[in-house]
C-alpha cells in the first residue's frame, strides 16, 4: 500500500510500460525507482566497524578508493570513512541488525537519490560530453566508481559491466536536470526518451 503513495524524481521520464528508454543506436537509459540507499560512516582503523558492516550486509566493504563491491547490494566507496549502500532489500531487517555498541553511523538516503542506468555502445561518448573525468576503456574499469560531474550536476558514476553499463546516482533534486541533460545530449547519438507528458 505504501508503495503506491511514493513519488520519485524523474517520474515523468519513466516509460509506463517498462521504465526503460532506448535508442536505435545501442543506448538505453533505465530509471531505477524501487531501490533503497543507505549512507554509512565509520573509521577504517576500527576493525570492529568493518567486521560489523560486513556481517550486517553479508558483503565486503570496498576499502580501495573509487571502487564498489557487488553482492546482495552495491556498496560504493565515497570517502575514506564513507560508503553508499544501494539495495533492493527492505531496510528494516538490515537496520535492526545494527549494534549500538559499534561506532557505525548510518543515515537513510532512500528519498535523496535517484539511480539511472545508461547502457550501450555510445554510453562513454555521451557521458564524456558532460563529464571531465577520463572514463575511457583503459581508464575506468568495471568495479570502479567516482564522484564526478555531469553537465552542472554532481553524480556518482560506476561501471558495472562491459556492455558497458554505467550506474548514475544523482541527488533527487538534480535528477530531472540529469534526465534532461541525457535526453538533450543523447540526441547526438540517437537517444530517444519516451516522456509521459
Amino acid at each position: 500500500m505504501l508503495n503506491e503513495n511514493k513519488n520519485y524524481a524523474l517520474d515523468d521520464f519513466i516509460n509506463e510500460e517498462k521504465s526503460s528508454l532506448s535508442s536505435s543506436q545501442g543506448l538505453g537509459i533505465n530509471i531505477r525507482a524501487e531501490i533503497n540507499f543507505l549512507n554509512i560512516r565509520g573509521s577504517i582503523n576500527d576493525s570492529d566497524f568493518i567486521k560489523h558492516v560486513e556481517a550486517v550486509f553479508q558483503q565486503a566493504l570496498p576499502l580501495d578508493f573509487n571502487t564498489f563491491s557487488v553482492g546482495e547490494h552495491h556498496i560504493y566507496w565515497l570517502a575514506p570513512d564513507e560508503w553508499l549502500v544501494v539495495t533492493e532489500h527492505d531496510l528494516k531487517p538490515i537496520l535492526q541488525k545494527i549494534s549500538p555498541e559499534i561506532d557505525l553511523y548510518i543515515t537513510n538516503q532512500t528519498g535523496g537519490y535517484t539511480q539511472l542506468i545508461l547502457q550501450g555502445d555510445y554510453a562513454r561518448s555521451l557521458l564524456s560530453k558532460g563529464c571531465t573525468l577520463d572514463i575511457g576503456e583503459k581508464k575506468f574499469l568495471i568495479g570502479q566508481c567516482a564522484q564526478t560531474g555531469l553537465g552542472k550536476a554532481g553524480i556518482l558514476l560506476a561501471l558495472t559491466d562491459s556492455k558497458p553499463s554505467f550506474n548514475i546516482i544523482v541527488r533527487r533534486s538534480f535528477a530531472e536536470y540529469v534526465g534532461l541533460w541525457l535526453k538533450q545530449c543523447g540526441n547526438e547519438f540517437g537517444v530517444n526518451f519516451t516522456h509521459k507528458h
Binding site: R41, D81, E82, Y105, N108, Q109, G112
Partner: peptide, 13 residues
C-alpha cells in the same frame, strides 16, 4: 575530532 556529517537535504522533505 571524531565527527561525521552527512547531508539529508534531498532525502528529507
Amino acid at each position: 575530532l571524531d565527527v561525521y556529517m552527512t547531508s539529508l537535504t534531498d532525502h528529507l522533505s
